[in-house]
Design a protein around this nucleic acid. Sequence first.
RNA 1: GGCGGCAUAGCCAAGUGGUAAGGCAGCGGUCUGCAAAACCGUUAUACACCGGUUCAAAUCCGGUUGCCGCCUCCA
Length: 479
Amino acid sequence: MLKIYNTLTKKKERFEPIEPGKVKIYVCGPTVYDASHIGHARSVVVFDVIARYLSATGYEVVYVRNFTDIDDKIINRANELDIDTKELSERYIQEFYEDMGALKVRQATHEPKATDYIAQIIDLIRLLLEKGHAYEAGADVFYAVESFNDYGKLSGRRLEDMQAGARVAVDENKRNPFDFVLWKGAKPGEPMWNSPWGKGRPGWHIECSAMSAFFLGHHLDIHGGGKDLIFPHHENEIAQSEGAFGERFVNVWVHNGFVKIDQEKMSKSLGNFLMIKDILKQYHPEAVRLFLLSNHYRSPIDFTEQAMIEAETGLEKIYAFLERITQSAGPDTEGRNQQEQGELWEHFCETMDDDFNTARAMGLVFDTLRQLNRIMDEGTDATNGKKRARLESVRADLKRVGLVLGIGTEAPSYFFEQKKAKTLEREAIDKALVERLITERVQARQQKNWAWADQIRGELAAMNIVLEDRPEGTVWKAK
RNA sequence: GGCGGCAUAGCCAAGUGGUAAGGCAGCGGUCUGCAAAACCGUUAUACACCGGUUCAAAUCCGGUUGCCGCCUCCA
């Protein structure tokens, strides 16, 4: 039984899909005016795992993640660079796909751009005007927050409270300071579209209401995004969608916590934004996922070098295990994965059913690794009979779990080869040299010339190359 | 000022009433020529502090302290 924490009710609730067997999810995607940072990665990875898990447990998932490709920040940035907004947004959409692809994020069912849905946006604004939730003021159209009784229900705010300490830009055209713009009248040099209210462009909040309605209808199962979007963005979406359509907009609101960098919030002023593409130069994409999924999605998470090194260490442990089990139980073939779902998968589902507890899921994975390593340590009879069946069954489950989390999905040999290649490049070492030194050391060991052997091992260690003398021979690994 | 969150071992972290998952680091051991890897053992009489409810609380309630987020563009 799946339970999800709902921001609206501040409780974990049993999840009941609107249509049996089907889940409709909308997640707010990025405003594409700059490269994606680790905070974007968290949100996208968290909802990627949620969508994968729902699919894996039998739901038909319709997942929509938008791109905001028109807004003040985009216009400003485009002006700075002296290019048009389309060129700018397309560039960063492209980068977004590169970054998220590298992080092994699956594509959503639909990934619409706001500027492709101007007609739907205009229709929605027209409906809000008809229903008395919006008004024209000068060249702009505003949403009248006082016309919507439930305004503030998601963020737990009341208009009166907010007005007391209002830090909102005063706009003479607004009836209430919290009224927000649905349609902005055109300004010179800005992109514009025709509308019943003259040339202009949509406000930020309206696009999500319009696109979610277009792809998913008026009533969604899950709507997600970063915690910061609760107010005003999601509050405003509720006002728009429920105001326009007169029915409940979203059943479950899901919000992920922030990523901090060395205890500090990422911000423009601190200049500490960590971009995904830079992080990936240093760390394996699955290590980034492992790091992100090692905490509960609603908690803040602190990005530090130490945390990333630990994630890399953990990832290597997983691949070392996968490599070992391949030797012990034979190669991982298609047929073997058809096995029935076992205990590990069952426990994984229990854990994920509890508000997507990926941190505990990682604990399960490491626990399983230890148990199976012990079986393999016990001896060669692990290669036959009951033990082998157990190994194969758990491996199949581990693979299923890995496919939900997006961790441990590469062939172990590939993983280690990539790692070696990266280290060799970084340390500017010739692979042939490493292999020659190892051959030399094997000879030294055969002659029981331990001093020589140890000296060679020391030299390689200085190059970040670690040797393992296994019964079947010496292998090397890169740090 | 308004709203909300967090405080668990050296570090990270799960755990919302029944007696502390998991990871990293450390220490001892098995294995090894020695290592590495893996495994075994060990590491919080204890969950910020005070008080309360209960047979029973890290978990619920009240208070205190500290940290953080949102209220302005932000994942």
